[in-house]
């Protein structure tokens, strides 16, 4: 658990970066911090592992003030992933992943096993990739290694600073999907910084909108859309449009056609009528914690599938489409 208590951060000359931050990130929750550049989201992140120090207030990790802890020990308990990845070019992929366990003096055998498991988890089979060097991997593969490295010592908290910001859009989407899968498997407490609203909707259990060092709203994606805290938030998530469009769009408009193949997952999934409004589908999804629906027509015949991901993806796209067309403030 992470808690910010009235945290401020300013630099000499009166530049205020963070202005009274108060929020909690619960155990196993993924909170996305989002906002325009310079809003203080990255600084807030770095206060957690003490790569930056607050000017006022306290940051608590598992109830303990981080200022009272040895930064090195603290950081070894917290995973950290950055946009530039920062893999060590002179170490193999396996050595990179096993680094924190090595710093923590795990036995050679234990850390090697751990590295192999993690590489498998992030979709880079250890047998193939363990002995390779970072420069032999694509950007997307490198970031998978970055994620594996952050998880290596099984930290309960992971900090991610625009981790997928530097890869191409298709790879980014893939990584986001993987990230959801990984998170549902490992259930870490994650603070995730991004400026990509679609990414925020895809990944966040809750989304924190920041502007000029303040947290304007911290709520579930649905709440942020339904009840934006103020006009800025509303515009940032695309004004009235995404939500209103969900009013008109129906499940059949975004469902994936079946293409003849029916997977087991789909057969086990709850059913939803293709005429349902997307808005209602979304409410059902969050209510039932369902990630996948089997779409059926009026006669009850399966016609396709609808995933939470595709709905969130749509909302994200609608939101980012729209906020980019509104004039900047």
């Amino acid at each position: 658990m992470i808690e910010f208590q009235n945290v401020t951060k300013s630099y000499g000359g009166g530049v205020v970066v963070l202005d009274g931050l108060n929020f909690k990130v619960n155990e196993g929750e993924l909170v996305v911090l989002i906002g325009p550049s310079g809003c203080g989201k990255t600084t807030a992140l770095k206060l957690i592992n003490r790569l930056a120090e607050p000017t006022g207030g306290r940051v608590l990790v598992d109830g303990q003030d981080v200022a009272k802890q040895d930064p090195v020990e603290l950081r070894r308990r917290i995973g950290y992933v950055i946009q530039q990845i920062g893999l060590f070019p002179h170490m193999t992929v396996g050595e990179n992943v096993a680094l924190v366990p090595r710093l923590k003096n795990w036995s050679e055998k234990k850390r090697r096993e751990r590295a192999r498991d993690l590489l498998d988890l992030v979709g880079l089979p250890a047998a193939t990739y363990e002995k390779r060097y970072p420069r032999e991997l694509s950007g997307g593969q490198q970031q998978r290694v970055g994620v594996a490295r952050a998880l290596a010592a099984d930290p309960s908290i992971v900090l991610m600073d625009e981790p997928f910001g530097a890869v191409d859009p298709i790879t980014r989407r893939q990584l986001q999907f993987e990230m959801r899968k990984i998170q549902s498997a490992v259930r870490k407490t994650i603070v995730f910084v991004t400026h990509d609203i679609a990414e925020a909707f895809l990944l966040g259990d809750r989304i924190g909108l920041m502007r000029s060092g303040r947290l304007l709203q911290l709520a579930t994606p649905e709440e942020v859309l339904r009840q934006p805290a103020d006009d800025f938030v509303k515009e940032f998530v695309g004004g009235d449009n995404p939500w209103r469009k969900l009013d008109f769009l129906r499940v059949r408009d975004v469902a994936q056609p079946l293409n003849g193949d029916t997977t087991n997952a789909l057969q086990a999934a709850p059913r939803i009528a293709d005429s349902t409004l997307l808005k209602d589908a979304l409410t059902r999804m969050s209510g039932e914690h369902a990630e996948l629906f089997a779409v059926v027509d009026e006669a009850g015949n399966p016609t396709g599938s609808l995933s939470l991901m595709s709905v969130m993806e749509l909302i994200g796209e609608l939101a980012s489409e729209d906020s980019s067309s509104t004039p900047a403030h």
Binding site: E73, L74, I85, F88, L99, G146
Partner: peptide, 24 residues
């Protein structure tokens, strides 16, 4: 970024010097 990653992972500055900076 490599240095920041090292710091963020909890390497001490002498560890960063001997295990990262000097070899590179």
């Amino acid at each position: 970024a490599v240095i920041e990653a090292g710091r963020g992972m909890g390497m001490r500055s002498w560890q960063i010097l001997t295990a990262v900076e000097l070899p590179l």
